[in-house]
């Protein structure tokens, strides 16, 4: 981690990793989509709509994974002042928000035939929606503060406050209303999903995770370069001002 504090070294590493990672994403998502749409049997109750789950569940996992990345990066910003932690947190927010949005949209598309409505105020749906709002708040805070250092630290504080609050929000919303399918993959007593459906789900989850990492690394590279351009422009303006004076 410390050797990566040098952005140039980090960029070099990213350039080396990206081609391999892209290939991995293509292979995993290709296999996963093939398995989901052509190999997996339709569910005995849900029929063909069960295939939405292969997109929905990994997206929901990554929605939470994205916030975890941001919270860890926030610790990196506030405690170790790692120069890349802020870049990592800032670029993870839109990606995580997008996965949250995908989970919400696919969930409501699944809900229409299953529950008869696109949206119900069920506990899990609501807590995902609140998570989406937390993402929006973080993104808005980053965009409202011009100075990069201050924006990064403020967002890190907000991210940690949110991280402490997420379990409380989850708990209170569960108390409030529950209709969603109970967790069926990670639970004591083993998964309740048939292996024929579980395999494509895990391949898709691995593919989505690799996609997240790929997008995140690319976004971090873009953000570092954007900051360099900004710094160069500033020195240029300062030099011009000095030359005039």
């Amino acid at each position: 981690m410390i050797s990566l504090a040098n952005p140039t070294r980090f960029l070099g590493l990213v350039d080396k990793v990206l081609p391999w990672l892209s290939a991995l994403v293509v292979i995993l998502l290709g296999t996963g989509l093939y398995l989901s749409f052509f190999v997996a049997p339709p569910d005995y109750q849900q029929g063909e709509t069960v295939r939405i789950m292969f997109i929905h569940v990994p997206a929901a996992w990554l929605a939470m994974f994205g916030y975890t990345v941001i919270a860890i990066a926030a610790l990196g910003t506030l405690i170790w002042r790692h120069p890349l932690a802020d870049v990592a947190a800032k670029t993870a927010a839109p990606i995580g928000a997008t996965f949250t949005f995908v989970a919400l949209v696919t969930g409501s598309l699944w809900g229409k035939p299953m529950w008869g409505t696109y949206w119900v105020w069920d506990a899990r749906l609501t807590s995902m929606l609140v998570l989406f709002l937390l993402y929006l708040g973080l993104i808005a805070l980053w965009q409202s503060i011009d100075e990069l250092g201050r924006a990064g630290r403020a967002a890190a504080i907000l991210a940690l406050v949110g991280a402490i609050n997420i379990p409380i929000i989850k708990f209170s919303v569960d108390w409030w209303n529950t209709l969603h399918q109970p967790a069926s993959v990670f639970r004591t007593g083993g998964p309740t999903i048939d292996p024929a459906l579980l395999t494509p789900l895990f391949v898709m989850a691995a593919g989505f995770t690799a996609l997240f990492v790929l997008l995140h690394l690319m976004a971090m590279r873009a953000e570092i370069l954007r900051r360099r351009v900004r710094a160069l422009q500033q020195t240029q303006v300062e030099r011009a001002a000095l030359a005039e004076a």
Binding site: A140, S144, L158, V161, N165, I168, I169, S172, W175
Partner: peptide, 19 residues
Amino acid sequence: LLALLVVPLYVPVLIFGVS
């Protein structure tokens, strides 16, 4: 911005306050 940041944090207070 303040409203956007804080309202999600109010969810538990609202739920238990109303119930």
